[in-house]
Design a protein around this nucleic acid. Structure first.
Length: 809
DNA sequence: ATTCAGACTTAGGAATAGCTTG
DNA sequence: CAAGCTATTCCTAAGTCTGAAT
């Protein structure tokens, strides 16, 4: 069915909108997201091993991957276009006067240019001289401050900046200046290019691929590709048929490109390939690497650091800033997420000829690796990237950019949150409008309203259209019929795969009118496979949003609602208790946000075990507590009037107690044995006299005594505590201590369990305004490093240094 | 209008570092 | 003190959004 015929059908439906006005009074649900969202289930994501089994969507025939491959097989020679960047005009003009003898002349330059400083000066001495000059000048200027032009004002700031740089190791606090020009990203940019992965290292001659039982001699290029697969043999990827198919196709192609096998074997079917020998070899290698621990690890790390040293930093407007991903991605098999049609395809090696560098016109061009040339060199200061290449799977671009702690990234981040805060002043009217428009007579308006509602309330992503050779995932605008189940009167079940093929499953109650609208959007002849929002795409929706506020797009709602939720949750936390308790509360708040945004993670393999252990520990603590209570009664039987206090004595069964005893005894025995072995190892090493078997026996005997004691206790019900607990008071004190420990352990266990499928990191890094966390730490006296690890403290330096306790999102 | 390239943010899992504990 | 687990960092895939080209 064509789009236009759809339009007709649906517009007919939309007439009906006017008849459904009767309900207008009952749909005034509170708008608060937290009240509406009930995460009924966090479901594990679809595993790779079960490729799309239930897709109603009719897929077009896939483009032959051979064609795709051919397109890129000669990418080394793709045209190097000389693109002209007129925005650079200013840059080149300015860089000529970099020696900045003529300050005055510079001041006359346009405002746009004047941010350009004298950072390119290489000579220290001249720099210092200039700074001195500047300082003197500055003093004068402050006197007649009122006379300063705007430009001079700005320049003054620059000077301040530079001073700080000098005084405290190049610390550029961009957040203390205002910077409104986001078209120009830098004025000078120097760097040393990118770091290439090491050349392929051939396998030893005894490690081979076997085909139909016979060893195969592969050309190096093909051996490398086979190795990529062999390494993944036992993983979900390796077992995925799509992955296997794509890999095998590309593998054969590489083999052909290099003249086939060296010993005449023809490779035709995947199933006859035996990668186990190669796989074993890699496993072995990994074991070796794991073993060598000791100082060698450190040595290796040092060497690695030395190698990457030149690439780690660049010079941005004269400041040293960290580069993020300066390593070019090594060749590998593409590991697509979810049921990805292209998963397993060969991601080819990237050569200098594929790389486009971006740096200042006057910056020295780094030497390409010997025997190679750079693909292209650009001087585009309207972009943030330092280098770029085109990858061969989709033909999209990969960028080398600055690290998260850089000024450029920091500024973007800051702007993002400020934009989200700006939404505060518009959100009421936006909500009012979309509520009203839920009943609009125009289908398009209704769809906009419902979509905005979903994005606002359930934090859905925009949901752009995806092509056939990507995983089938959706967001708001791309939701299909089958992703939404309606359960009258107003319950909706969302069930779809979102970004990264993470399942979004929520059973929720929605606004009554939204429910009706969804009903309409699902009306026949619509059926599974059809778009729910057939009139909408993100660009239409975003245009609509921008009528309210410049720069408002769907994703801003996620940031806004995440940070707003965090603010609200933090506000609920009482300022008392230990740091650990406050942290737990903070994490709980963080978790609300993560759940709102559907940030999941797979449970770690040791999780169930860890929970089990924690439970046993708590059980033991409780048992100990009971033991003390029993002791109290033994000391003073009259206490038993406090029935409530002693109630729990009866809540433990003998079986449970016996189990606990067994565990403790077993553990104690093991402890003794391990300690014995270890002590003797040590003594042996130091030439001391060894502990005799007698000693071990003594220790074990003590344990045995304990076992017997527990046994007696179990039989008689009389506890035999150490003499130091001979008064009621002492026992009570112990009980209190134990209770505290139980409380803490329980809450930590609960935290662990609730977090097992929720990823807090993503929201902390991307959605929660870091200033909220900083304020929380200040107000509640929690050290910031308890909440932000090192990298986040660097990334959020701007937030850490710029807010006080009164700041609010 | 629609498509598409380009550039940027957001995302979970793998790898590694660091810490605990048996 | 090594094994095992958790926390953090690294990696790169997968989104969003803009703006130019058609």
């Amino acid at each position: 069915m064509t789009v236009s015929s759809w339009d007709k059908l649906v517009s007919q439906n939309s007439v009906l909108g006017s008849t459904s006005e009767s309900d207008s009074s009952d749909d005034d649900l509170p708008l608060s997201q937290t009240s509406v969202i009930k995460q009924k289930e966090l479901v594990l994501k679809q595993t790779l091993s079960e490729p799309s089994n239930d897709e109603p969507k009719v897929k077009k025939e896939m483009t032959s991957s051979k064609d795709v491959q051919r397109d890129h097989s000669n990418m080394e020679s793709f045209d190097v276009l000389k693109v002209e960047y007129n925005s650079n005009g200013s840059l080149s003009a300015i860089s000529k006067e970099k020696k900045k003898k003529n300050k005055k002349k510079r001041k006359i330059n346009s405002v746009e240019n004047n941010k350009l400083q004298d950072k390119d000066i290489d000579s220290d001495t001249s720099l210092k001289k200039i700074k001195l000059e500047k300082k003197q000048k500055k003093k004068k200027e402050t006197v007649k401050k009122t006379e300063l032009s705007q430009e001079e004002e700005k320049e003054k700031e620059e000077e301040k900046e530079e001073e700080e740089e000098e005084e405290e190791e190049k610390e550029y606090k961009w957040w203390e200046n205002q910077n409104n020009n986001d078209e120009i990203k830098w004025h000078s940019l120097k760097h040393n290019g990118v770091m290439f992965p090491p050349d392929y290292e051939p396998l030893p001659s005894h490690v081979k691929l076997y085909y139909d039982g016979k060893p195969v001699d592969l050309p190096l290029e093909a051996e490398e590709v086979a190795g990529f697969y062999a390494a993944l043999l036992e993983t979900d990827h390796g077992k995925n048929p799509v992955f296997q198919k794509n890999f095998f196709h590309d593998f054969k192609q590489v083999l052909e490109e290099n003249g086939g096998t060296l010993n005449g074997i023809k490779i035709n079917t995947f199933d006859k390939c035996d990668f186990t020998k190669m796989h074993k070899y890699f496993e072995l290698k990994r074991e070796e690497k794991k073993k060598l621990s000791l100082q060698e690890r450190k040595q290796n790390r040092l060497e690695r650091a030395k190698l990457e040293e030149p690439y780690k930093f660049c010079e941005l407007d004269g400041r040293r800033e960290q580069v993020g991903n300066f390593r070019v991605e090594p060749p590998d098999l593409f590991r697509g997420r979810g049921a990805h049609p292209k998963t397993g395809k060969l991601k080819r090696r990237v050569y200098p000829e594929d790389i486009t560098l971006n740096l200042s016109e006057d910056a020295p061009i780094p030497d390409p690796p010997a025997g190679h040339k750079w693909g292209e060199v650009r001087h585009d200061n309207t972009v943030q990237w330092l280098a770029m290449w085109k990858e061969n799977i989709f033909g999209s671009h990969k960028y080398v950019r600055l690290a998260a702690n850089s000024s450029l990234k920091g500024q973007s981040d800051f702007k993002k949150f400020e934009k989200a805060r700006e939404l505060k002043s518009y959100i009421d009217i936006i909500r009012k409008d979309y509520r009203r428009n839920l009943k609009s007579k125009l289908m398009l308006e209704r769809q906009k309203a419902v979509a905005t509602y979903l994005i606002d309330v359930f934090a859905l992503r925009a949901g752009g259209e995806k092509s056939e050779d990507e995983a089938d995932t959706v967001g708001c605008c791309s939701l299909r019929y089958e992703h939404v189940t309606l359960k009258p009167p107003n319950t909706v079940i969302f069930d779809f795969l979102g970004k990264d093929s993470i399942r979004f499953y929520q059973e929720v109650e929605v606004d009554k009118q939204v429910f009706k609208d969804l009903m309409i959007f699902k009306r026949p002849p619509k059926q599974p496979g059809h778009q729910l929002f057939d009139r909408l795409d993100p660009s239409i929706l975003n245009k609509y949003l921008q009528n309210y506020m410049p720069g408002l797009t769907a994703k801003v709602f996620r940031t806004y609602n995440a940070s707003k939720t965090m603010q609200d949750q933090l506000d609920l936390i009482p300022n008392k208790g230990t740091i650990a308790e406050k942290l737990l509360r903070y994490n709980a708040a963080n978790r609300t946000v993560a759940i709102l945004c559907n940030h999941q993670r797979s449970v770690t393999k040791g999780h169930a075990q860890a929970v089990e252990r924690a439970n046993l520990k708590i059980e033991e603590l409780k048992w100990q507590k009971i033991r003390f209570k029993k002791a109290m009664l033994q000391i003073d039987p009259t206490l038993k009037r406090r029935t409530k206090f002693f109630k729990e004595i009866k809540e433990i069964t003998k079986e449970q107690e016996a189990q606990i005893h067994d565990r403790i005894i077993k553990r104690e025995r093991e402890k003794s044995e391990i300690k014995f072995a270890r002590d003797n190892d040590k003594r042996n090493f130091e030439g001391e006299e060894l502990l005799s078997e007698e000693t071990l026996k003594e220790w074990l005997d003590k344990v045995e005594q304990l076992r017997l004691q527990y046994k007696r206790e179990l039989e008689t019900g009389v506890v035999e505590l150490k003499s130091r607990y001979n008064t009621v008071e002492k026992c009570e004190k112990q009980i209190e201590k134990l209770e505290q420990r139980i409380r803490v352990s329980s809450i930590q266990l609960q935290d662990k369990e609730e977090n097992s499928e929720v990823s807090l990191g993503t929201s902390k890094i991307n959605y929660i305004d870091p200033r909220l966390s900083v304020v929380f730490c200040k107000k509640y006296n929690v050290p910031i490093e308890k909440i932000f690890p090192k990298t986040l403290r660097d990334k959020f330096k701007w937030a850490i240094e710029s807010v006080d306790e009164s700041w609010r999102f």
